[in-house]
């Protein structure tokens, strides 16, 4: 069976897997973005807290994802719970780091000016600092998403959802006629998804980065 015949025959299964993969990554990204920016906002003004947030997230990033999932399974069992936790945790890291870096990089004189025209602290944060720090934060979100695509594939080994199942089905039936098709379908599907997400982020960047600070 050629690859395209395989895709044609199994398109229902493949589409379901693709949808699950995308939705798992997307939902975890939304949670990770909210959490990550919140952590960034909460810590960037204190030297030690910001450093602690950055170093601890960086430490988690060095942990291999399979080992992380392995540590979560005894606590949460197999399936969706460890997958979602691991994905959110890994997704958090680039976002926390880039929000802290971005917020700290905002020109202090601009914040002073905002104070000077009588803006309150929340107004300063939402109308001056966060918009200025948004491009690096968005970069963090893009990096996170690409990373999560691959980690979600590995999570399929712990009965997680998504296209990783296709890859692991291929691995467990190595030598059979369909092994290559399954692995190829899973891998290409993930690459296509990652590129689509990336394109979406470029678009979001176009729409949301304030005109004044566009490169």
């Amino acid at each position: 069976m050629s690859f395209w015949e395989y895709v044609g025959n199994r398109h229902a299964q493949l589409l379901a897997d693709t949808y699950q993969h995308a939705s798992a990554v997307f939902q975890c990204m939304v949670v990770a973005t909210l959490l990550g920016v919140t952590i960034g906002v909460a810590t960037y003004r204190t030297e030690w807290a910001g450093n602690l947030a950055v170093t601890s997230t960086a430490t988690i990033l060095t942990i291999p994802s399979l080992a992380m999932i392995g540590l979560l399974i005894p606590i949460m069992g197999l399936g969706v719970a460890p997958t979602v936790t691991a994905l959110t945790l890994y997704g958090l890291l680039p976002i926390v780091r880039n929000s802290i870096v971005g917020l700290r990089g905002v020109d202090a004189s601009l914040v002073d000016a905002a104070t000077g025209i009588g803006m309150s602290r929340p107004a300063r944060l939402f109308r001056v600092e966060l918009p200025l720090a948004w491009p690096p934060i968005l970069t963090g979100i893009r990096v996170s998403t690409q990373m999560l695509m691959g980690i979600a594939a590995i999570a399929a080994y712990a009965s997680g959802p998504g296209l990783g199942n296709e890859i692991f089905r291929g691995i467990s039936s190595l030598g059979s006629a369909n092994a290559l098709n399954q692995v190829l379908a899973g891998t290409l599907g993930i690459i296509v998804l990652a590129l689509l997400f990336d394109a979406a982020y470029v678009l979001i960047g176009r729409l949301t980065i304030p005109r004044g600070i566009r490169a």
């Binding site: 170093t55 997230t57 960086a58 890291l93 780091r97 870096v101 700290r104 990373m147």
Partner: peptide
């Protein structure tokens, strides 16, 4: 991404901001 941090407090270069090494370490 860290550009600009060190310039934030020109009076105290010793406390120039931290520069997270995270993703450089992992190529992300």
């Amino acid at each position: 991404e860290v550009q600009g941090i060190a310039f934030r407090d020109p009076e105290e270069p010793g406390t120039a901001g931290p520069h997270p090494r995270g993703a450089t370490g992992t190529g992300l």
